[in-house]
Computed example of a mutant assay.
Amino acid sequence: MDISDLRIALFTGNYNYVRDGANQALNRLVEFLLRRGAAVRIYSPTVKKPAFPPNGDVVGVPSIPIPRRAEYRAPIMLPPSAKRDIRRFRPNMFHVASPELLGHRAVTLARRLDVPVVASVHTRFETYFRYYGLAFLEPLVVAGLRRFYRRCDAIFAPSESMAQLLREQRMNFDVGIWTRGIDREIFNPGRRDPAWRRSLGIADDVPVIGFAGRVVMEKGLDVFSDTIDHLERRQVRHKVLVVGDGPARNWFEKRLPNAIFVGFQRGGDVGRAIASMDMLFNPSMTETFGNVTLEAMAVGIPVVAAIATGSQCLVDDGRTGRLIRGGAITAYADALAFYCTDAEARRAAGAAGEAASGPYGWDEVNAALIDSYLRIIRQRAAGGRLPRSSPVP
């Protein structure tokens, strides 16, 4: 069996209606599969005006807006029409990308059809509740995630640090790596544009501290803004550039009145925006990989990030940037002040980061996942079966 024999049914709560790092990775995976001759069918909520055109054929499933995060939708079922479509498609692998109701129903159907099923882990869902006053729910969420992932043949994390966390949480006995790639046409040092910076009112000699990504509280916006307050009290010369949009943008704009907000950028524009920063500040504790961290490294700027899953596998502390204990405002401010005041240190860390980003090509990382698909299918064919129920110790 090879890649052209694969028939993948992919299930996700968001394939293209809101743009984020997870669904960008899924779309790149589908494009790779189709280009290599595999068949793919995607089952996901759909909207009239999605954020971008999807790769592959998408079958819509019923969904409702998520409370307090209405831009996202929660699938409420895997309808009979979708089940009939799946049976006609005859997949030999189910891939589930989000552990909500659609994912649970997909895993149940896969086991009923005796088809292997894998799950990819894209974010630390259990940590989100900390940012909405519901931290007491985290143990229950972890238990629910464990039950879900234990019903899969294997699960895949985007970084070794996240994979190790999943092993420690006993989420599955087969934990692999499906890392993330970088588009070198978009993210490279040549994208830096001094004229664009000047058009925003940023002088050439002013160091720019950047934020890039969805503007949501779980990205550590409170820590980011508190750290900037420290820099301003120390009178460290800098400018903050925020690239991205999201439901917390108004809060962030009020919190950082001197920052420049350029909104959502796409394609070459986002590469230009990140390359035109002088450092990236990523205090998020919810990342499983941190695509933007890799993008910043690829354009040749240092990264100051939290010691968190994902970032600690990308950032080489003291060489390509700094890794700081989550929430340590003074330490974050010290690291940013160092790069703001030492242009040579910025240059050296940026060059090291660009070199370290070299192995991350999309075709290479997706090919590794396909090898795992084929391994799991071979194991099933050789008699390997999941038990009808997977008890959690």
Score class of each variant (00 low, 15 high):
279 M>W: 03
279 M>I: 05
282 N>A: 15
283 P>L: 07
285 M>K: 12
286 T>S: 11
287 E>V: 05
287 E>Y: 10
287 E>F: 03
288 T>G: 04
288 T>A: 12
288 T>R: 08
288 T>I: 03
289 F>D: 03
289 F>T: 06
290 G>D: 10
292 V>C: 08
292 V>F: 14
292 V>M: 11
294 L>G: 15
294 L>P: 13
295 E>P: 12
296 A>E: 14
297 M>I: 10
298 A>M: 12
298 A>Q: 13
300 G>P: 11
300 G>I: 07
301 I>D: 07
301 I>V: 08
302 P>R: 07
303 V>I: 11
304 V>D: 00
305 A>W: 10
305 A>E: 09
305 A>P: 08
305 A>Q: 02
306 A>H: 04
307 I>M: 07
307 I>L: 06
307 I>C: 00
309 T>F: 01
309 T>K: 00
313 C>I: 02
313 C>M: 03
314 L>Q: 15
315 V>D: 14
315 V>G: 12
316 D>C: 15
317 D>N: 12
319 R>E: 15
321 G>P: 15
321 G>S: 04
322 R>V: 04
323 L>G: 10
323 L>W: 11
323 L>D: 05
324 I>D: 03
324 I>P: 07
325 R>C: 02
325 R>D: 10
328 A>R: 09
329 I>F: 06
330 T>S: 14
331 A>M: 00
332 Y>A: 03
332 Y>S: 06
333 A>I: 00
333 A>L: 01
333 A>K: 00
334 D>Q: 07
335 A>D: 02
335 A>W: 03
339 Y>T: 00
340 C>K: 02
342 D>A: 08
342 D>V: 00
